[in-house]
Amino acid sequence: MFRSSLAATVLSGASALTFLAAPAHAVGPSGLVAHRAVYDLELKDATDRSGIAGMYGRMVYEFDGSDCAGFTTNFRFVTQIDTGDSTRLSDQQTTTFEDIAKGTFRFETKSFTDDQLDKDVRGAAQDNDEGLKVDLTQPAAKHVDLAVSRFPTEHMLDIIKNAKLGKSFFEARVFDGSDDGDRSLVATTVVGKQTGPATDDADAEKAGAFAKTPFWPVTVAYFNEKSAGDAMPVYRMSFKLYENGITRDLTMDYGDFVLTGRLSKLELLDPKACK
Results as ranks from 00 to 15, higher is better:
residue 198 A to Q: 07
residue 192 G to Y: 09
residue 111 S to K: 15
residue 47 T to Q: 09
residue 213 T to C: 06
residue 77 F to K: 02
residue 137 T to I: 01
residue 29 P to Q: 12
residue 103 G to Q: 04
residue 190 V to H: 11
residue 179 D to K: 15
residue 53 A to Y: 01
residue 126 Q to V: 15
residue 56 Y to K: 15
residue 243 E to R: 00
residue 200 D to F: 03
residue 100 I to D: 02
residue 244 N to Y: 03
residue 3 R to Q: 05
residue 15 S to E: 15
residue 166 G to I: 07
residue 31 G to H: 04
residue 253 D to F: 05
residue 203 D to F: 00
residue 17 L to D: 13
residue 168 S to T: 11
residue 18 T to Q: 09
residue 207 A to W: 00
residue 6 L to G: 09
residue 250 L to V: 09
residue 87 T to L: 13
residue 148 V to E: 00
residue 24 A to Q: 15
residue 122 R to K: 13
residue 147 A to G: 12
residue 98 E to M: 02
residue 97 F to I: 10
residue 129 D to E: 13
residue 224 N to F: 03
residue 2 F to P: 02
residue 9 T to W: 04
residue 149 S to F: 02
residue 209 A to N: 05
residue 113 T to Y: 07
residue 137 T to V: 10
residue 249 D to Y: 01
residue 154 E to D: 11
residue 76 R to N: 08
residue 212 K to N: 07
residue 3 R to G: 01
residue 218 V to G: 08
residue 154 E to C: 10
residue 194 Q to L: 11
residue 180 D to S: 15
residue 76 R to V: 08
residue 255 G to A: 12
residue 91 D to A: 08
residue 31 G to Y: 03
residue 20 L to N: 14
residue 233 P to Y: 02
residue 103 G to L: 05
residue 138 Q to K: 13
residue 213 T to R: 00
residue 131 G to V: 10
residue 133 K to Y: 01
residue 127 D to C: 08
residue 137 T to M: 03
residue 81 I to C: 10
residue 43 L to R: 08
residue 91 D to H: 05
residue 29 P to V: 05
residue 49 R to N: 13
residue 57 G to H: 03
residue 5 S to L: 12
residue 17 L to N: 10
residue 100 I to Y: 03
residue 16 A to P: 08
residue 84 G to Q: 06
residue 219 T to N: 07
residue 114 D to E: 15
residue 122 R to N: 04
residue 128 N to W: 05
residue 107 F to A: 06
residue 197 P to C: 03
residue 204 A to T: 04
residue 9 T to A: 06
residue 89 L to H: 05
residue 50 S to H: 08
residue 109 T to N: 06
residue 119 K to N: 07
residue 21 A to I: 02
residue 98 E to Q: 09
residue 104 T to A: 07
residue 207 A to I: 01
residue 240 K to P: 10
residue 202 A to V: 14
residue 207 A to N: 06
residue 129 D to V: 04
residue 203 D to M: 00
residue 152 P to K: 10
residue 143 H to K: 14
residue 193 K to T: 14
residue 201 D to M: 00
residue 160 I to R: 06
residue 206 K to R: 11
residue 213 T to G: 03
residue 177 G to H: 05
residue 46 A to M: 11
residue 8 A to C: 09
residue 253 D to S: 11
residue 64 D to Y: 02
residue 2 F to V: 05
residue 247 T to P: 03
residue 12 S to V: 07
residue 275 K to L: 13
residue 11 L to A: 03
residue 256 D to G: 14
residue 118 D to R: 12
residue 226 K to L: 12
residue 16 A to S: 06
residue 247 T to D: 06
residue 243 E to P: 06
residue 85 D to H: 04
residue 49 R to I: 12
residue 273 A to F: 12
residue 163 A to S: 08
